[in-house]
Design a protein around this nucleic acid. Sequence first.
DNA 1: CACTCACGTGGATACGTTTTCAAGCATCTC
DNA 2: GAGATGCTTGAAAACGTATCCACGTGAGTG
Lengths: 355, 355
Amino acid sequence: MEKRATIKDVAEAAGVGVATVSRVLSGGSASASTRERVLAVAAQLDYRPSALGRNLRQRRTGGMGLLVPDLTDTFFGQLAEGVLACARSAGEPVVIGSTGDDPEQESELIGMLLEQSVDRVIAVPSGDADTWGPAIRAGMTVVFADRQPAGAQEPAGGSAAGDLMLLDGLAPAPPARPAARPLEVPAVLADDRAGIRTAVRYLRGLGHRRIAFLGGPGHDRRVAAFREAVGEPVDEELIVFATGSRDSAYAAASGLFQSRPDLSAVLAGGNVLGEAAVLAARELDLRVPRDVSLVMYDDVPWAELCAPPLTVIAQPGRDIGYRAAELVLRAASRRPRTVVLPTELIVRGSCGPRR
Amino acid sequence: MEKRATIKDVAEAAGVGVATVSRVLSGGSASASTRERVLAVAAQLDYRPSALGRNLRQRRTGGMGLLVPDLTDTFFGQLAEGVLACARSAGEPVVIGSTGDDPEQESELIGMLLEQSVDRVIAVPSGDADTWGPAIRAGMTVVFADRQPAGAQEPAGGSAAGDLMLLDGLAPAPPARPAARPLEVPAVLADDRAGIRTAVRYLRGLGHRRIAFLGGPGHDRRVAAFREAVGEPVDEELIVFATGSRDSAYAAASGLFQSRPDLSAVLAGGNVLGEAAVLAARELDLRVPRDVSLVMYDDVPWAELCAPPLTVIAQPGRDIGYRAAELVLRAASRRPRTVVLPTELIVRGSCGPRR
DNA sequence: CACTCACGTGGATACGTTTTCAAGCATCTC
DNA sequence: GAGATGCTTGAAAACGTATCCACGTGAGTG
């Protein structure tokens, strides 16, 4: 940075004290004449207050942190765009990190945010309560987006979650805890349960009985919803997991198709898994939807480009991000509660009657 | 933030001065015994230096800014992942902004970075020299990625670029300027010229004569390369532009197909445009590749999912981001020069012989 | 032994801002 | 007219760090 005018320069040029300049610029009280003069001088000097000084004084960095698993996944791209849109309208900077769905990397990134004194973060979490506990205890305002940490869905019971409690919004009010008051973390989620249920019913309606689920990291709630929607005797072999990578997703999909040629429909828990399913099916000469029906979680632009176009459960990625950013910004005044956004089954061409 | 140990606490606990602690932690000289003691105390107190204090002292924020047009575009997602990977390995934070391909928003974001004293930024620029001049004059180290500002390709001639000069790497050495030494901005680019040329030759080889180009914001170099590759009498109606939005891209593609039913091949300048072309072709009942051949710039995962799979010009998005981040980090020691990364024509199924 | 030199060390300062505090001044009230 | 009240104002004190500078100590050199 070459050198910019400081508040001191403005004060001198306007013939007032620095305190007055600060007040005028941050909306404090000042006489009309002084205000006018200060504003004029500031404009003339092209003065822009340095965030550095302010941050140090307030012992906190403005703006917010954003942690997502992978920006290459279109859904997280949408989510990030939502966050950025909200941040922009608030004039706040966003520092971003990509966790690769790895709790360790996530932990490191949290450490980095802590070091930067970024005390507001919206995250698509990969780690569990052990990862997030320290951050929250350190005073961070965190809002989860799209998911909640694993194992934290059931507030009751002596879970390993320890002092981390999540506001589920779906679960009943938590029982009073004996010892310390648990920390509460709001979240912005899609209504996975309804989305999955609708999809399963739709497939059922087409005659499908052997429906498989392709899950990825963070899809716990979707799997649970799937189990619930399918009903009691769920064939465990039909539920398959992959890690975040595309290779892993492809392997999982391919393995599933090969080991269970009797399945007639697949529900992919995310767009990367959907992509893998399409690829694997084609590789194995399975026709969609003649041989196998496919429903994908996430609506992404290319779903329409597939042949046939993919039937999807759309979740509002951009809205999720925007709302989460709103929550984290408002957290200072209003204690935020978890919000659940609706999903929508968009029927295109990838599902047919059971052959 | 609750409250953390400061360098002062460490100094007291270790019985040394703050200066010594600072030196030990930033790798300065110190006796082995002191170093050991300070380190031990720091670890025991869980001391983490505050970026706030350091930033203010050094009058600059660490890390780097990243400005991209749209995170929903997979290519920019890849690019961002590359930047983040490099930043992570350097332990540096990244503050991100999405410009929406709008110079005005870009300008605002630059202002925000300036305010944050972020003095290193890697950008996929939307604005021109007028947008970037102020930032560079203010002392920012900027590296362009994927594109260069419009109108800045020809260093020679009395261009409106003013004092902003770009290191093209492809252009001959710039002539000596009369007045002030021009500012130089390095860039990391894909070899558009070679990529486009190869694609055009490939299409020519298949017999295509009427090849259209679908361009978007920032595709100037690609258009130029297209003109060059096609040769002298270029049919201007076959070169069509869209703004960054998907709607606009679709409109452009659809309009092109309708106004020029005689074209036999389309070269889409980016993946959003490719997507639009596929959609528009389908809507108009044009079969790919029977009725029209299609080549898309950018290799994205879903290119393979299309029916038929899309022939693409692949550019290494992730590498571009990574290299750009490297350049901007090294800029302090080594004066960076523009680097051009290779592209590759990946032939799949979207091109056929002219009907 | 005197002198220099290198090195480890800590005090002090500056970075640019917000905020507290008390002082100054005009107006209002009794 | 004296006291109280309200508003505007500026000096000063933080915030946590890096760095300049001066000081002391030990070793090395003539």
